[in-house]
Protein backbone atom coordinates (compact mmCIF):
# COMPACT_ATOMS: atom_id res chain seq x y z
CA UNK A 1 0.00 0.00 0.00
CA UNK A 2 1.39 3.36 -0.97
CA UNK A 3 0.05 6.45 0.71
CA UNK A 4 0.98 10.05 1.30
CA UNK A 5 2.02 10.83 4.83
CA UNK A 6 1.86 14.60 4.51
CA UNK A 7 -1.41 15.96 3.25
CA UNK A 8 -1.20 19.72 3.42
CA UNK A 9 -3.20 20.76 0.44
CA UNK A 10 -3.34 17.44 -1.28
CA UNK A 11 -6.10 14.89 -1.19
CA UNK A 12 -5.04 11.75 0.54
CA UNK A 13 -4.56 8.95 -1.93
CA UNK A 14 -3.78 5.33 -1.26
CA UNK A 15 -2.61 2.95 -3.92
CA UNK A 16 -3.04 -0.74 -3.43
CA UNK A 17 -0.55 -1.97 -6.01
CA UNK A 18 -0.30 -5.56 -4.70
CA UNK A 19 3.39 -5.51 -5.42
CA UNK A 20 5.47 -7.57 -3.04
CA UNK A 21 8.71 -6.01 -1.95
CA UNK A 22 10.79 -5.22 1.12
CA UNK A 23 12.09 -2.12 2.78
CA UNK A 24 15.85 -1.91 2.63
CA UNK A 25 17.69 -0.02 5.30
CA UNK A 26 21.36 0.76 5.23
CA UNK A 27 23.53 2.54 2.79
CA UNK A 28 23.08 2.15 -0.95
CA UNK A 29 26.11 1.50 -3.15
CA UNK A 30 25.66 4.98 -4.56
CA UNK A 31 26.07 6.46 -1.12
CA UNK A 32 22.49 7.30 -0.28
CA UNK A 33 21.41 6.50 3.22
CA UNK A 34 17.64 6.80 2.82
CA UNK A 35 15.39 3.83 3.06
CA UNK A 36 14.78 2.06 -0.26
CA UNK A 37 12.45 -0.61 -1.56
CA UNK A 38 13.78 -3.79 -3.08
CA UNK A 39 13.22 -4.53 -6.76
CA UNK A 40 9.62 -5.68 -7.25
CA UNK A 41 9.55 -9.31 -8.27
CA UNK A 42 5.98 -10.42 -7.83
CA UNK A 43 2.52 -9.34 -6.85
CA UNK A 44 0.00 -10.78 -4.47
CA UNK A 45 -2.51 -11.24 -7.28
CA UNK A 46 0.00 -13.33 -9.25
CA UNK A 47 -0.33 -15.94 -6.58
CA UNK A 48 -2.23 -19.11 -7.35
CA UNK A 49 -3.53 -21.46 -4.74
CA UNK A 50 -3.34 -25.01 -6.01
CA UNK A 51 -4.50 -27.77 -3.68
CA UNK A 52 -3.96 -25.41 -0.81
CA UNK A 53 -0.38 -24.67 -1.84
CA UNK A 54 0.60 -21.11 -2.63
CA UNK A 55 2.29 -20.87 -5.99
CA UNK A 56 3.90 -17.91 -7.67
CA UNK A 57 4.65 -18.17 -11.40
CA UNK A 58 8.11 -16.83 -10.60
CA UNK A 59 8.85 -20.09 -8.75
CA UNK A 60 8.13 -22.08 -11.91
CA UNK A 61 10.40 -19.71 -13.79
CA UNK A 62 13.26 -20.32 -11.36
CA UNK A 63 12.74 -24.08 -11.57
CA UNK A 64 12.82 -24.12 -15.39
CA UNK A 65 15.84 -21.85 -15.44
CA UNK A 66 17.73 -24.27 -13.21
CA UNK A 67 17.36 -27.13 -15.67
CA UNK A 68 17.67 -25.37 -18.99
CA UNK A 69 20.17 -22.63 -18.21
CA UNK A 70 18.06 -20.16 -20.15
CA UNK A 71 14.40 -19.48 -19.61
CA UNK A 72 12.25 -21.27 -22.18
CA UNK A 73 8.80 -20.03 -23.13
CA UNK A 74 6.31 -21.65 -20.85
CA UNK A 75 2.69 -21.54 -19.84
CA UNK A 76 0.96 -22.63 -16.67
CA UNK A 77 -2.47 -24.16 -17.03
CA UNK A 78 -4.51 -24.67 -13.92
CA UNK A 79 -7.72 -26.63 -14.04
CA UNK A 80 -9.99 -28.50 -11.71
CA UNK A 81 -10.94 -32.07 -12.47
CA UNK A 82 -13.17 -34.13 -10.22
CA UNK A 83 -12.82 -31.58 -7.47
CA UNK A 84 -9.02 -31.65 -7.59
CA UNK A 85 -6.78 -28.87 -8.87
CA UNK A 86 -4.44 -29.83 -11.67
CA UNK A 87 -1.25 -28.06 -12.65
CA UNK A 88 0.08 -28.42 -16.16
CA UNK A 89 3.23 -26.67 -17.29
CA UNK A 90 3.84 -26.47 -21.02
CA UNK A 91 7.41 -25.80 -22.04
CA UNK A 92 8.65 -25.02 -25.52
CA UNK A 93 11.50 -27.21 -26.69
CA UNK A 94 14.64 -25.37 -27.73
CA UNK A 95 17.40 -26.59 -30.03
CA UNK A 96 19.69 -26.77 -26.98
CA UNK A 97 17.27 -28.95 -25.05
CA UNK A 98 16.47 -31.22 -27.97
CA UNK A 99 17.69 -34.80 -27.99
CA UNK A 100 17.64 -37.21 -30.92
CA UNK A 101 16.22 -39.99 -28.76
CA UNK A 102 12.83 -40.38 -27.13
CA UNK A 103 14.60 -41.39 -23.91
CA UNK A 104 16.52 -38.12 -23.93
CA UNK A 105 13.34 -36.10 -24.33
CA UNK A 106 11.57 -38.01 -21.58
CA UNK A 107 14.55 -37.36 -19.35
CA UNK A 108 14.27 -33.63 -20.01
CA UNK A 109 10.57 -33.83 -19.26
CA UNK A 110 11.09 -35.51 -15.91
CA UNK A 111 14.01 -33.26 -14.95
CA UNK A 112 11.83 -30.21 -15.54
CA UNK A 113 8.95 -31.75 -13.59
CA UNK A 114 11.21 -32.68 -10.68
CA UNK A 115 12.75 -29.24 -10.57
CA UNK A 116 9.28 -27.69 -10.33
CA UNK A 117 8.22 -30.19 -7.70
CA UNK A 118 11.21 -29.53 -5.47
CA UNK A 119 10.72 -25.78 -5.83
CA UNK A 120 6.98 -25.67 -5.22
CA UNK A 121 5.93 -28.94 -3.59
CA UNK A 122 3.47 -29.51 -6.42
CA UNK A 123 3.84 -32.24 -8.98
CA UNK A 124 3.04 -30.80 -12.41
CA UNK A 125 2.01 -32.56 -15.58
CA UNK A 126 4.86 -31.44 -17.81
CA UNK A 127 4.19 -31.15 -21.50
CA UNK A 128 6.84 -30.40 -24.10
CA UNK A 129 5.54 -28.38 -27.01
CA UNK A 130 7.06 -27.28 -30.31
CA UNK A 131 8.86 -23.92 -30.48
CA UNK A 132 6.70 -20.86 -31.10
CA UNK A 133 3.45 -22.64 -30.33
CA UNK A 134 2.71 -20.89 -27.06
CA UNK A 135 0.91 -17.62 -27.30
CA UNK A 136 3.08 -14.53 -27.45
CA UNK A 137 1.62 -11.33 -26.20
CA UNK A 138 2.58 -7.71 -26.57
CA UNK A 139 4.15 -6.38 -23.42
CA UNK A 140 3.56 -8.49 -20.36
CA UNK A 141 3.44 -12.17 -21.19
CA UNK A 142 0.38 -14.12 -20.19
CA UNK A 143 1.89 -17.05 -18.38
CA UNK A 144 -1.06 -18.38 -16.43
CA UNK A 145 -4.31 -19.78 -17.74
CA UNK A 146 -6.67 -20.59 -14.93
CA UNK A 147 -9.59 -22.66 -16.16
CA UNK A 148 -11.05 -23.30 -12.74
CA UNK A 149 -14.50 -21.89 -12.22
CA UNK A 150 -13.86 -20.41 -8.82
Amino acid sequence: MLTTLSKHAMPMIRYRTRDITMLLTGRCECGRTLRRIRRIGRRTDDMLIIRGVNLYPSQIETALLKVEGTLPHYQIIVDRRKGLDTLEVQVEVTAEGLSDTVGGMEQLQSRLAHSIESMTGLHPALKLVAPRTLQRSEGKAKRVIDLRAL
Binding site: V93, T94, A95, G97, L98, S99, D100, A130, P131, R132
Partner: peptide, 11 residues
Amino acid sequence: LQRNGFAVKVT
Protein backbone atom coordinates in the same frame (compact mmCIF):
# COMPACT_ATOMS: atom_id res chain seq x y z
CA LEU B 1 13.99 -25.58 -40.50
CA GLN B 2 15.45 -23.45 -37.74
CA ARG B 3 14.47 -20.26 -39.50
CA ASN B 4 10.94 -21.57 -39.64
CA GLY B 5 10.79 -22.15 -35.94
CA PHE B 6 11.67 -25.82 -35.57
CA ALA B 7 13.97 -27.14 -32.87
CA VAL B 8 16.66 -29.03 -34.77
CA LYS B 9 19.58 -31.10 -33.51
CA VAL B 10 22.43 -32.41 -35.66
CA THR B 11 23.77 -35.89 -34.88
